[in-house]
Structure formats: structure tokens, C-alpha cells
């Protein structure tokens, strides 16, 4: 709540928080590159590494404690993400997919932890770099497994069409697979986290403004509505955060699977 008092405008009327106030955060301790999302991203990486280290450094046959939780997450990624999209190659890619899933999940969960309350992925640079690395891996695997020319031929010229149609469809295929697919991969995660953070900030701002700053009788009902909406949307947001982490890992598995085996 203390962060919101800073955001409250000096004038006498309610003003919704702007994206600039919410996402343009200054550097911490005078270091230019060390902003809140960077700090949270480093913290998330340490958290994920520490979690996996604690769980899998000395694995027991009968899992206990942290290993139990981690194995549940591993099983989820293996059964819901890797096996449907990679089939028999699933086990080779589990390391990457589990890391991506847990990292994105922790990034997103940062948005609802009290006093931290900033989803890292709502700065587009973070999901974009992650999507770009998946994209580089996709192209590398595609060229390695299908051959340099064969990969692009399978991508741009699917068999069984009359010749003139290829002229019309090849630019669409190329742009869709090479440029727009990694872009939407990153933007899906970014846009959901950005919009979710704005929504939560707006409703908690409504509650704070009408219940604490300017308490009036008709205004208090709106303030109560804002508080109730904040609680409901926080629950909904946690669901969305989990879902986006799952979808990011799933799309990564899908791109890898598509590069490994040519579509028929």
C-alpha cells in the first residue's frame, strides 16, 4: 500500500495510474542498469537455481520435502508439455523445458507476492530475449535435422499445391514462421503480464483512494467494490500467471518438436 501513496496525485480528484508510473522504475542505489525488474530477474534466477539444486542435487529414491514438490513440477512439465509435443525425444529436452517453465512461473508469481508486486515479464525485454533464444535453437535444430535447404523448403513450400499458388503463399509462410511466430511467442506473455499488472494497480488504487484518501459515503461503496475486485482479480491473475508460464513452455516445446520432425 505504501507504493500507492506515492502514486496518488496531489489534486483532489481520482486519476487512474498510468503505464509510465507503473512500469518506468528508476535505478536502485545509483547504478544505471539495476532497476527493479532486473533485480527481480536476478532474484528469480537464483531462486530457481537454488530450488532445483535443493531438490535434485542429492536425489533420494523416496522423495521428501523439496524434492517432492520439484518432482511434482517436473512430472507436470513432462506429461503436459514435453510428451505431447516431443514424443520419444521428450526426455532429452526436459532440462530446458523445466528451466523455462519454472523461470517464467517465478517471474510471473513476483507480480502477486506482497511488497514485491512486479511481474518481471511485463517489461518486454525479458520475454523477448527468452523467445529469441528459443527461436535460435529452433532454427539451429531445423537446419541440423532437415538440412539447410530442406528446412526452408518444408517451411515455405508445403507439397500438394498448384505452382502459381506458391508464389502467393510463400511470403506469408516465411513471414509467419520466421518473424511473427517468435514475436507473438514473446508478446503473449508480455501483454498478459502487463495488462494484469495494470488491472490490479487500477483496482487497488480505486480501493485506496475512495477508502483512505477521500472517504465519503457514496465513494465508500466504490472503494469497497474496488477492494473486492482486487481480491477476485488477484486470484484470477495467479491463474493467468500459471497459465502463461505453461503456454510459454508449451510453445517452446512445440517449436522444438516442429524443428526436429518435418511436418507431413
Amino acid at each position: 500500500m505504501s507504493a500507492l501513496t506515492v502514486l496518488a496525485p496531489p489534486g483532489g480528484e481520482f486519476r487512474a495510474p498510468t503505464p509510465d508510473e507503473l512500469f518506468n522504475l528508476g535505478p536502485i542505489a545509483g547504478i544505471a542498469w539495476l532497476t527493479k525488474p532486473v533485480l527481480l530477474a536476478i532474484l528469480s534466477s537464483i531462486l530457481v537455481i537454488g530450488f532445483c539444486w535443493a531438490a535434485f542435487a542429492k536425489p533420494k529414491l523416496v522423495p521428501r520435502g523439496v524434492q517432492n514438490v520439484a518432482e511434482y513440477g517436473y512430472m507436470f512439465v513432462r506429461d503436459q508439455v514435453a510428451r505431447p509435443f516431443l514424443g520419444k525425444d521428450a526426455d532429452r529436452w526436459m532440462g530446458l523445458l523445466v528451466s523455462v517453465f519454472f523461470l517464467v512461473l517465478v517471474w510471473n508469481i513476483m507480480g502477486v507476492i506482497p511488497f514485491i508486486q512486479f511481474p518481471v515479464a511485463s517489461h518486454i525485454a525479458f520475454p523477448f530475449v527468452l523467445a529469441l533464444s528459443i527461436y535460435a535453437l529452433k532454427i539451429y535444430l531445423g537446419v541440423k535435422h532437415q538440412g539447410g535447404i530442406g528446412y526452408f523448403k518444408n517451411m515455405m513450400f508445403p507439397p500438394g499445391l498448384p505452382k502459381p499458388i506458391y508464389l502467393l503463399l510463400a511470403p506469408i509462410e516465411f513471414l509467419s514462421n520466421m518473424i511473427i511466430a517468435p514475436f507473438t511467442h514473446a508478446v503473449r506473455l508480455f501483454a498478459n503480464m502487463f495488462a494484469g499488472h495494470m488491472l490490479l494497480a487500477f483496482f487497488s488504487m480505486v480501493g485506496f483512494w475512495f477508502l483512505f484518501e477521500k472517504l465519503t459515503l457514496p465513494g465508500s461503496t466504490i472503494g469497497l467494490l474496488g477492494v473486492v475486485m482486487t481480491i477476485i482479480l488477484t486470484g484470477f491473475e495467479m491463474f493467468i500467471q500459471f497459465l502463461q508460464a505453461f503456454l510459454f513452455a508449451m510453445l517452446a516445446a512445440m517449436y522444438i518438436g516442429g524443428a526436429l520432425h518435418a511436418e507431413h
Partner: peptide, 17 residues
Amino acid sequence: RDFADAMWSVPSYLLAG
């Protein structure tokens, strides 16, 4: 896999077109 592949690639195809 094929089904999810098809559905997820629809938006990028339409945007590319």
C-alpha cells in the same frame, strides 16, 4: 501435437498475410 500446432499458428499466419 498437430491440433495444437494448427491452432497456435493461425494468428501468426493471419498477421503475416
